[in-house]
C-alpha cells in the first residue's frame, strides 16, 4: 500500500457507522468534533497533557489529540455522547452530578471516559487506583476530591 495524503475511513462511533474522507494530517479529535459534529469531547491543551479529549478506541483509553483520524480506520470509538441512553444519565454520570464532581465542566467528558475505562477494568478501585486512573486528566476547578468520590460511588 502506498502513502496517501487522504483516505476514506470507516468508524463506529457510539454504535453508529460513519464513512468519511479525511486528510492524513487530521487529528482524531478534530474528526470527531468538526467532521462528525460530536462536540462532547473537548480540546483543552492540544499537546497531550490535559486529557479533555479522551475517548475509547477499541476499548482502549486514548487522548484523541495524540492520534490521527486515519489511524482509527475500522475502529469502534466511544465518546461521552454514548454514555447516556434515551436521555437518562448513566450511573457514573449521575454520580458526578450527585457528588458535585464538576464546576465549569470542561474536563468532565474526558474524566468520564477515563473513569469508564477504569471501572471496566477494576470494578471496585481504591482511592489510590482512582487517582492513578485519572492522572492523565487535569481539572482546574474541583481539586479532584469530589471526582474521586463520584467514581468511588459509581463503582458497583
Amino acid at each position: 500500500m502506498d502513502a496517501v495524503s487522504s483516505r476514506t475511513i470507516t468508524v463506529d462511533v457510539n454504535g453508529e457507522q460513519y464513512e468519511r474522507e479525511v486528510e492524513a494530517r487530521r487529528l482524531l479529535i478534530h474528526f470527531i468534533r468538526d467532521d462528525l459534529g460530536l462536540t462532547g469531547s473537548h480540546i483543552g491543551c492540544d499537546t497531550g497533557n490535559c486529557g479533555a479529549c479522551s475517548v475509547l478506541v477499541d476499548g482502549v483509553l486514548v487522548k484523541s489529540c495524540m492520534m490521527l483520524a486515519v489511524q482509527a480506520d475500522g475502529a469502534k470509538i466511544e465518546t461521552v455522547e454514548g454514555l447516556a441512553s434515551e436521555g437518562e444519565l448513566n450511573g457514573l454520570q449521575q454520580a458526578f452530578s450527585d457528588h458535585h464532581a464538576l464546576q465549569c465542566g470542561y474536563c468532565t467528558p474526558g474524566m468520564l471516559m477515563s473513569a469508564t475505562a477504569l471501572l471496566r477494568q477494576n470494578a471496585s478501585p481504591s482511592e489510590e487506583e482512582i487517582r492513578k486512573g485519572i492522572q492523565g486528566n487535569i481539572c482546574r476547578c474541583t481539586g479532584y476530591v469530589n471526582i474521586v468520590e463520584a467514581i468511588k460511588a459509581a463503582a458497583p
Binding site: M1, D2, A3, V4, S5, R7, E23, A24, R25, L27, D46, L68, V70
Partner: peptide
Amino acid sequence: MLLREVEYARPASVQEALRLLGSNDGAR
C-alpha cells in the same frame, strides 16, 4: 493545532515498511 500536510501509509509487512522508509528521505 494543525499538522502540515503529510502522507500516510500503513504497511502490512516489515519489508514493505522498510521500502517506504527507504524510498523517501522525508519518511518517518
